[in-house]
Design a protein around this nucleic acid. Structure first.
Lengths: 205, 205
DNA sequence: ATCTTGAAAACTTTTTTAGTTTCTAAAGTT
DNA sequence: AACTTTAGAAACTAAAAAAGTTTTCAAGAT
């Protein structure tokens, strides 16, 4: 039983870093300093292992999103935290990983897509509604439309081709997108809250 | 002859983006919109193709480095340009690519290592010597030592583990390393040139 | 009308990898 | 001290995948 459950996060990191194809079971065992046999005692096959590693990733994000509801004073503070978490998580989703996922683990790929299209969009929609109630986001905008726009923004960031010719740091692009987006949905008072909260939380780490 | 030589840069991009293992010959043909047959008419096997794609990368860098000698007013201007080019090139060297290279194309991996350890270090050493003649870098420092230090700095940036826990944008880390390094080797007048030249060339794109 | 070209796809061969088994050494147990 | 368990190392097998080849077919050129 030398493969403690904490090792699953190490495995996840290796998958994120090198992709699912390059990270073979032999290589994985070598990196973990254990034998393949030990891995197979905990996970019946590679598919199960990949699901465990990447499913945990989704669950973590789900948990962090749930925690935000309590901790956030207003919709804009929550938006900033959501964005920061989401951005950080997305940086792990390298082109290779997404490519391998789509090709070799389509059911997991579809689960990721579903998570983004349904759960994230849902969370975002409720966030917009809350912000409208708080007078921070304009009443005229439709939360359903805006939440789907947000999904498109994350798609932009995940696509390695779209902004690559600009050679900008991805963080810059992200901040630009956020500025335009927030400017587009906030009321004047909401925009003020955005600017002050942003400064307090130093979004640029 | 539908596989124009310009396509080799597209192939290179695909290798960079997805690694050498995930990018199979079938997938490559699909992405290029041609048949495997056509690829094999130009490149006898995958190894040759990988060498062509990645060897071109080195040659380009070699060319850019050579061009710098003419274009740069002083050693510090050249250093800034060198660093910018090197940093941009290095961003393409993803963990997956380096991993696949090391595992499946060891002779090419060694060529890359040699290029860094010999050619880059040599270029750097001559740059330091020039800077000393221009009174920008301190006489006491040994160009041979400093150039090897610089190699270690690039190693730091290529290793995905070292700074990952900081969650800083890689560009920030790079600028920090540069600041410390330059501060360590410049004379007072050199430091002035560094600060003014840096501002003129806007290193932060 | 004939020839060439290259994509599409079927096909073969080779390599790689997943998954299993065997062996051995070390640690703990009785 | 003999015995049992545990896990790594490594050899092994079976299956999958990828490299590389060949055939077919359609479109454009001669």
């Amino acid at each position: 039983m030398s493969l403690a459950p904490t090792h699953i996060s190490t495995i996840r990191e290796l998958f994120f870093r090198y992709g699912l194809k390059s990270m073979t079971m032999d290589e994985l065992a070598r990196q973990l300093g254990c034998s393949k046999k030990t891995i197979y005692e905990h996970y019946s096959d590679k598919k199960v292992l990949v699901h465990a590693a990447l499913g945990g990733f989704l669950n973590e994000h789900r948990g962090e999103m749930a925690a935000l509801d309590q901790n956030s004073d207003n919709a804009i503070a929550k938006l900033i935290r959501m964005a920061a978490i989401g951005f950080q998580k997305m940086r792990n989703l390298t082109p290779t990983l997404l490519f391998d996922l789509q090709k070799s683990y389509p059911e997991l790929w579809m689960e990721l897509e579903r998570y983004r299209k349904e759960e994230i969009v849902g969370i975002f929609k409720r966030l917009i509604e809350r912000g409208q109630q708080e007078g921070l986001f304009r009443q005229e905008i439709d939360p359903s439309v805006v939440s789907i726009m947000h999904l498109q923004h994350t798609n932009l960031l995940l696509d390695p081709v779209v902004f690559s010719h600009l050679n900008h740091p991805i963080a810059n692009i992200f901040h630009n997108i956020m500025e335009v987006f927030v400017g587009g949905i906030t009321t004047p008072s909401g925009l003020e809250v955005w600017n002050t909260t942003k400064a307090q939380m130093n979004l640029h780490p």
